[in-house]
Simulated scan of single mutants.
Amino acid sequence: MKDLSATTSDSMPKNLIHKFHLSEQLNIIRAGVLGANDGIVSVAGIVIGVAGAQQSQTALFIAGISGMFAGALSMGGGEFVSVSTQRDTQKTMTQLQNLNIENDYQGELENLTHHYENEGLTTDLAQKVASQLMKNDALNVTLKSKCNIEVQHYFNPWNAAISSFCSFILGSLLPLLSITFIPYPYKVSGTIGAVILALTCTGYVSASLGNSNRFKGILRNLLVGIATMSVTYLIGGSLG
């Protein structure tokens, strides 16, 4: 029994660390996919709307490039603020948990024991595992069991912000280049076709990351993108 407890205490923190690091990586990927998708839809909506107003090639390019950088800065800044708030929450939870351990060590030990019982361990084994892990690193193990937080491994807001900013730029390049270089009279239709292809890709990727239905993810993405371009084109056409 002692060997089993020691093995559990050695392997469990590594598994939890791996889980946390994976969640941080997925958060960066999520920001990147979201940024690319927004870049495609936002800039496509802008340039299609300006094209609907029958503006010059120069006006199309200026509108597109302005929307690209404005959107990228907005997305990057939004991700930075959002993940910074999450990081502050993680630090606050760490401080509160440290106080809980200092003021009620036995209560935290009992909570950890119940946690492992709920995970399927027998009461006797759960008590031994919880006791050993609390002796090794009480703060880390209780934080992982309660909040899936690892001390000193908080989400980095700069990673998400840079991922979102760069992916927005990359996503917005497609509609911008399409509306700029595709000749009349195929400029609008060609841009819409390129955007539909790009949205299909980002919809598939986002659905795959979330382990959800790929077809629904793609369809949802396409409906939002096509609706955005249709509305902006109609507005540009009516006001131009």
Rank of each mutant, 00 (worst) to 15 (best):
G64S: 05
T232L: 12
I46Q: 05
E108Y: 10
L222N: 06
I226E: 00
M12H: 08
N100W: 09
A138G: 12
H18K: 03
A63L: 08
F69N: 12
A160F: 07
Y204H: 06
G76D: 06
A161H: 06
G78T: 10
T89V: 09
V43H: 01
S163V: 02
N159Y: 12
Q106E: 14
G49T: 10
G49S: 09
T228D: 08
F181P: 02
K128Y: 03
L73F: 14
P157I: 05
A227I: 07
P185V: 00
I169C: 09
N118G: 08
V205C: 03
S212W: 03
A44C: 05
G39F: 01
A72E: 08
S131P: 10
I40Y: 05
A126C: 13
S206K: 13
A207P: 02
A31L: 10
I226D: 00
D124N: 13
I196W: 01
I48M: 10
G171P: 04
K2T: 15
H114D: 14
T58R: 05
I179Q: 06
N148D: 13
L209Q: 05
N140T: 03
I46M: 09
V151E: 13
M134T: 12
D88G: 07
L34S: 10
F61V: 11
Q54V: 05
T123Y: 08
V188L: 06
I48V: 15
V33F: 00
G203T: 03
I218S: 07
S238L: 15
A138P: 11
R220Q: 08
K91N: 13
S172K: 02
S11D: 11
A44P: 08
T85K: 11
T123K: 13
L109H: 11
E117A: 08
M12R: 09
S167R: 04
S82P: 11
